[in-house]
Structures are given as C-alpha cells and as structure tokens.
C-alpha cells in the first residue's frame, strides 16, 4: 500500500514536472508558459515596411512611414 502510494506520487511529480504550464491552462487563466519577458509597450511591427522589395519607377524618396507609427502613438496615449 505504502509502496503504491510512493509510486503514484513519484509518477505524479514526474509527469507534472515534465508537462508545461500551458497544457493545463484555461480561458482567461494566467500567463501559461509565458515567462514575462516583455516591456510595457510590446513591439510587434519590426517588419512593417509597405514598400519593402517594391521596385520604384520614379526615383523619389518614399513618404515618411515609420513602422506602425500611428499604432505606436495610439498605444502610448
């Protein structure tokens, strides 16, 4: 009986130690497997260049479009 308990406990500890916090997550629950490596303002628009790789027929500088500039300003408000 005692042996069984120990085996069951060991199995439980092992399986919980190996499964991620994400697998038991429910809607609206905590951060899950997210360790919290972030700043208050999250940057997600590094590839935001509408004219990237587009050949320009007329050699003028493109209009000043900082990546998601508007989004950035709004999120800081």
């Amino acid at each position: 009986m005692k042996h069984r308990l120990i085996t069951a406990l060991t199995a439980l500890v092992c399986s919980s130690a190996c499964s991620s916090p994400e697998t038991a997550r429910t809607r609206g629950d905590g951060p899950g497997a997210d360790l919290g490596n972030r700043d208050p303002i999250v940057r997600m628009h590094e590839g935001s260049k509408p004219y990237a790789g587009t050949p320009r027929l007329i050699p003028t500088p493109p209009p000043p479009l900082d990546p998601a500039d508007q989004a950035d300003r709004l999120s800081r408000r």
């Binding site: 991620s20 994400e22 697998t23 997550r25 429910t26 809607r27 609206g28 629950d29 951060p31 899950g32 497997a33 997210d34 360790l35 919290g36 490596n37 972030r38 999250v42 940057r43 997600m44 628009h45 590094e46 590839g47």
Partner: peptide, 28 residues
C-alpha cells in the same frame, strides 16, 4: 488558450496579453 507556439518559444518572444491573445514580439 493553450498555445503551442508560445509553449515552445525558447526566447519568450511569444507572449500572452491581457486580452488572452497570443502575440510575437518582433524585437525579441
């Protein structure tokens, strides 16, 4: 709700927001 990408991300670039959504930080 249980996001596979967020789970394996080894740099924690993928985060969970306060809206329960999953976002990739492009600077990480």
């Amino acid at each position: 709700v249980q996001a596979a990408c967020l789970e394996v991300c080894p740099t924690n670039a993928i985060i969970r927001t306060e809206f329960d959504t999953v976002v990739i930080q492009s600077d990480v």
